[in-house]
Design a protein around this nucleic acid. Structure first.
Lengths: 347, 347
DNA sequence: CTGAAAGCGCTTACAG
DNA sequence: CTGAAAGCGCTTACAG
């Protein structure tokens, strides 16, 4: 610090540095510092330099609460997810965090557990915290509610196709994903394919099943509803489904589990019953969870790029906040062939 | 609303309700409303009732930014974790969130990736956001740094034993966990036990290994360093370790992977090499990840109660914030016997 | 291009 | 027990 600088009330004293101290050190007004900080107006180069120097010297970081109060924006985005430790949405959360953060927004994650009432409560909580916008990862809220919410603040929703002002929806092509999975099994010669579904209330699940049927139809094969058994998107559902399926005594050689967690359960049940994958049954999952590549055997599955989806959702939110109307096409599904599927041997 | 009520500047107009509107509706001063809200002082019953009614009627939620600015506390706690989507720490994050939230604190999760420099940056970021305290889930920061940080704000750290003012450390007994795992293998008759370790810089890992050696010693068995191979706490490390181990041609029948992720990799490698668990090799992991119970076969492992640890860390933080000095004992390890271990058959 | 001033919505001594 | 007032640290019209 140069000896000619004016005396400061609080050079290196207690508590954090304030904008006032910066202004004083730089010899400019509060407003000027603020403008430089926010790039709100053109400022002479000399002052800018002085201020930058002062900021660096004092190690100044603006108080986010004060900034928010005065500016009317909290610089935080609410994210309603199934659960903070959801195996699938985890990557999406990371994608959101990693794109929101450099843009100066912090993320507030809340767990809605795919429950309408909880999700509503999450909304109230986030609004109470004055978030600038909300990202809803799928969830179970009715479209009508979402449209209403979008009237009061920017909204990005995944897993739907919805048109409304201040709202962007990012749908994933579950139908095509389902089609890919079954087409793969068919190409390997499997014609009797069992399906383990999610809950009927999950639109994802019904779409994936539709894709399955479409692939069957395209191959001129009949759809046997007896081979469709209801799971719950959790491992245990996969276990039970396989037990049920085998008890039925209706022959099949392929299994399409509508998500990887159920596929893991199915693999375990098969293992316990002494059946081998892929020599006895070929198994396809959906999602491509991080652990699926390390399953024994590694799981053939339909990849749903969760991280990228999170990134995209965050980018849309940033644009919405700027007053733009983002138009995006979410990444599509792709088949990842690993070791849980194999060509059917003619017997 | 009764017709006799005084006129409000802003009855049901735009924007959120403020404390001033509540005060006006209830016919009291701003300060009184604030006091009732915070339970800061005794208030006459009549006024309390009126204020409560007004709050309910207007659906008032205090502005957290204003509260923080004026009160000097942000009511938010920073949490430095390995990654927002970490398989192991996910449950801990949930435990933290679920106990901090009802206490009126929100959680700010940041990913330090077990990298000292990143973790330092996380610290700066969180301090910039003016969090009231920080919880560090293990991480790689040197103890000395932690002690320094603790001088400026309350700190809760897991995975260490550390004494300092304003700091509470919650260590997990990794030594005992390691001992349990190997004792289990020994009790099944396995005497040649391979160990797949984490990185040498992970204290967890070295402790677990020490526990292994202690169990061996207690059984009067020799420790063979050639059976110890270095992993990385990730699945791939487990895969490689098994390949290396089998290539060595040194016989062994038990494998202790120092975490479940490496155990999963080991299981996969074994599967690919045509080896069967548990008839060819018994495998024990560590952590008890949610997916380990659904591995094929379900993994025998040492349970480390992540959720409970998160809860405990959050509770300690709350106490620290109240000015108390929490003294706690973290939950201990327990052996979970599943299907990946079996008694050695005499050959 | 730049400053003085009002104001964001609360909390908290300070006086009754 | 309760009110008027100052102040938390910024942003943003409002005037130059």
């Amino acid at each position: 610090m140069s000896p000619t600088q004016p005396t400061l009330k609080n050079t290196k004293a207690t508590g954090p540095v304030t904008i006032e101290m910066v202004a004083q050190l730089a010899g400019v007004s509060l407003s000027t510092v603020s403008r430089i900080l926010n790039g709100t107006a053109v400022v002479s180069d000399a002052k800018k330099q002085a201020v930058d120097r002062a900021i660096a010297e004092l190690d100044f970081v603006p108080n986010p609460m004060a900034r928010s109060l005065a500016g009317g924006r909290s610089h935080s985005i609410g994210v309603i997810t199934r659960a903070i430790d959801s195996p699938f949405y985890g990557a999406a959360l990371r994608g959101i965090e990693e794109t929101l953060d450099p843009a100066g927004y912090s993320s507030l994650f809340v767990s809605g557990h795919f429950d309408v009432n909880l999700e509503k409560r999450c909304f109230d909580l986030l609004r109470g915290r004055r978030v600038d916008g909300i990202i809803v990862l799928t969830g179970h809220l009715p479209d009508s509610n979402l449209k209403t919410y979008a009237k009061s603040l920017p909204l990005v929703v995944t897993g739907r196709t919805l048109k409304a002002k201040g709202l962007v929806s990012l749908d994933f092509d579950n139908f095509e994903g389902g089609r890919l999975a079954t087409a793969h099994l068919l190409s390997l010669g499997h014609q009797k394919i069992a399906v383990i579904t999610g809950e009927a209330s999950h639109k994802d699940s019904t779409e994936r099943l539709r894709g399955h049927c479409a692939a069957l139809a395209a191959a001129g094969l009949p759809f046997d509803p007896r081979l469709v058994v209801a799971g719950d998107y959790l491992e245990l559902g996969g276990v039970r489904a396989v037990e049920e399926l085998l008890a039925q005594k209706i022959p099949f050689t392929g299994i399409f589990a509508l998500n990887d967690q159920m596929a893991a359960g199915a693999a375990l049940a098969l293992h316990r019953l002494g059946k081998h994958i892929p020599s006895d049954y070929s198994l396809v999952g959906f999602d491509d969870l991080p652990q699926s590549v390390y399953a024994a055997p590694p799981l053939t599955t339909v990849r749903q790029p969760a991280y990228e989806l999170g990134e995209l959702a965050a980018e849309c939110m940033i644009q919405l906040l700027k007053g733009e109307s983002p138009s995006v096409k979410p990444p599509g599904p792709s088949l990842i062939v690993r070791e849980s599927t194999r060509a059917l041997e003619r017997r």
